[in-house]
């Protein structure tokens, strides 16, 4: 791995708390790593497993998902439903061998510009530590196996 390699991290931030928190960080001139690309979603419960796995498939080295703190959800309970899904999903993808640091969840309130910057810093440092994502990334240079050919 070359020294200059920088990870690409996709962050799904909810419209009501986490995205404003990132916005607040920007307004407050707080610096966060440029590795993080933000996708604004209506609510953390909008983030399905499909979205997270698609990000990994398309070559994201890390994924961040954030919503309002429990009790603060704009839709009352979206983040609480999401919490159950995320817990199961994280366990499942680690079970099949995806590195624990690749997919991360956290809560951030609209006022927590400092916290979101801290999380982005830690996550991008830890993903950088993990190195480029190799698992679940779709590539064309991998020759397709015919079904009867097993791994050596």
């Amino acid at each position: 791995m070359s020294q200059s390699w920088e990870p690409k991290i996709i962050a799904f931030l909810c419209n009501w708390c986490s995205y404003p928190a990132a916005d607040l960080a920007g307004v407050g001139r707080m610096q966060y790593p440029p590795n993080v690309r933000i996708v604004r979603v209506p609510c953390s419960s909008r983030v399905s497993a499909n979205l997270i796995l698609s990000a990994l498939k398309s070559g994201a080295d890390g994924v961040l998902v954030s919503g309002c703190h429990p009790g603060d959800c704009h839709y009352i309970s979206g983040n609480l439903y999401a919490r159950r899904r995320f817990a199961l999903l994280k366990n499942l993808i680690e079970f099949i061998g995806i590195e624990p640091g690749r997919v991360n969840f956290f809560w951030a309130a609209a006022s927590e510009g400092g916290k979101i910057v801290e999380v982005m810093k830690t996550v991008s440092a830890s993903v950088k530590e993990l190195g480029p994502a190799g698992r679940m990334v779709k590539r064309f240079d991998v020759p397709a196996r015919s079904p009867q050919q097993k791994f050596a």
Binding site: P70, G71, L80, R83, R84, F86, A87, K90, N91, N104, F105, F106, W107, V119, T122, V123
Partner: peptide, 10 residues
């Protein structure tokens, strides 16, 4: 449940 575990979060 409001008390669901969330120790998997950052």
């Amino acid at each position: 449940s409001e008390t669901d575990r969330q120790d998997f979060m950052v």
